[in-house]
Every structure is written in structure tokens, then in C-alpha cells.
């Protein structure tokens, strides 16, 4: 059954209709998915402490139940190298509606993939794997499968991606760690099967993959509208 931590995160996110990113990261971590080292700075004092624990450079993102699309409000800052820069970002963000702090994470590099989930009317939970990043809806290079996934589904999804070649060592780059990617997708499918009734869709975008492994750099979990039930 659902681990208590997962259930309580879903319960506390119901009002907003989606799971705030720090909560999403912690939910994914409980489910065995790889997430970056991160901290949620809820006041100015915490900013420096968290960042020095993680080690510069860091990435920072606004946390607010009113901001689903962070990039649209310039709510993401990458490659931050100092406490001053970070505090400056914090101050700017604090002007946004329902500001609830900033999320500070280690900077990571890798190929950008997208892993997602949706609940299809006819077929139920569906997993998506694609070439990720902000242009994902332009190239539409994605593969879809009904969950739960079997390991052979993961390999056939990778074969289906036109950009799959970019992952297996294109032009001298090191190939990504496919076994880590498979594990990530299987854990994700497993989580999805357990939380299907609660969710509308999930985007892990990007999932950063390199020769060492995969990390969920950004996560958006949208919940079903349960107003009718209340």
C-alpha cells in the first residue's frame, strides 16, 4: 500500500491541486527515484546554510502554490555561485504571490529526457519517455506505454525515440547509463500504479541522464480535481 509519507504529501497538496516541487522531490525520493541534493529555504537565513551544505554552484527555483510554470515568472536560476547572488534571487522571488521560499539544488549535467505519466480514459495509467527540455512539445519525440512497464517495454521505448542515438554515445559523448534509466522508469511505473487514483499527470522534465546515472531535475505532479468529492 501507499507509504505514509507519500499519502501525507498527497493529502497536504490537495488544496493547491498540485504538489509543490520540494514535496514532489521528497515523494519521489521515498518511491526510490533519484533526486538531486536539495534544500527548501523558507527564510533568508536558511539560504546560505543550505547552499554551503550542497556546495556551489547551485540551482534555485521559486516555491509557490500559485506558480505552476516557474520559467514564465523567471522563477528558475542556474549556476548560482555565491550566497549574495542567491539572497538576491530570494528577494526577487519573495514578491511573487503566495511565496513559500526557494528550492536550492546541486547543479547537474546530462542529456535532458522527459518521463511523464497521465491517466488515460480508455487504458488507465500511461508512462511517457521522450527527449526532454523546454522544446519537448515542438519535437514530440516521445514513446508511450501502458503501465505497469516491463523491462522490455523500456528498451522498446528507447528504440522508438528518434533522438535515441543521442543517448548512446553520439559524436564522442559517453553513452548514458541505460541500466539506471531502466531502473528509474520501472520505479516510476511502480509509483504510478500506487498513486493512480490521485493524479492527473506527472512531468519529470528534465530527467538528466549521463554516464553515471539519472536524476530528476524538475518534477511537476498535478492532482485530480477532487472538489466533487468534498
Amino acid at each position: 500500500m501507499l507509504k505514509n509519507e507519500i499519502q501525507s504529501i498527497l493529502d497536504s497538496s490537495r488544496e493547491a491541486g498540485w504538489v509543490l516541487e520540494p514535496d514532489a522531490k521528497s515523494l519521489l525520493q521515498v518511491a526510490g527515484l533519484p533526486v538531486p541534493r536539495y534544500g527548501w529555504a523558507k527564510d533568508m537565513e536558511a539560504v546560505g546554510t543550505i547552499a554551503s551544505e550542497i556546495g556551489y554552484p547551485v540551482a534555485a527555483k521559486v516555491v509557490s502554490p500559485a506558480v505552476v510554470h516557474k520559467t514564465e515568472v523567471q522563477g528558475v536560476a542556474l549556476e548560482i555561485n555565491s550566497k549574495e547572488e542567491l539572497q538576491d534571487f530570494y528577494r526577487k522571488m519573495s514578491l511573487l504571490p503566495e511565496f513559500a521560499g526557494i528550492l536550492i539544488e546541486e547543479m547537474l549535467e546530462g542529456e535532458e529526457l522527459i518521463v511523464g505519466a497521465t491517466i488515460d480514459h480508455q487504458f488507465g495509467p500511461i508512462v511517457l519517455l521522450g527527449i526532454g527540455g523546454t522544446a519537448v512539445e515542438i519535437y514530440k519525440d516521445v514513446a508511450l506505454r501502458m503501465a505497469p512497464l516491463a523491462p522490455e517495454d523500456v528498451s522498446s521505448m528507447l528504440q522508438e525515440l528518434k533522438g535515441g542515438k543521442l543517448l548512446s554515445g553520439y559524436r564522442g559523448k559517453e553513452p548514458i547509463n541505460f541500466s539506471a534509466l531502466t531502473d528509474t522508469l520501472l520505479s516510476f511505473s511502480d509509483l504510478l500504479m500506487r498513486i493512480t487514483p490521485f493524479i492527473e499527470s506527472i512531468d519529470l522534465n528534465p530527467l538528466l541522464c549521463n554516464a553515471q546515472g539519472c536524476v530528476v531535475a524538475d518534477a511537476r505532479i498535478m492532482l485530480v480535481n477532487q472538489e466533487e468529492n468534498n
Partner: peptide
Amino acid sequence: SSHTASLAGDYQVFTSVLKQ
């Protein structure tokens, strides 16, 4: 509200699941 919901249209899902 998400890339996945936009990319996983009814028919895209239908055809992929059949093949799977």
C-alpha cells in the same frame, strides 16, 4: 497543464498501447 498530458493524446496512447 503538463507536457505529458499534451503529448499523450487519446489516439497516440491508443496506437502505442496496441503495439505494446
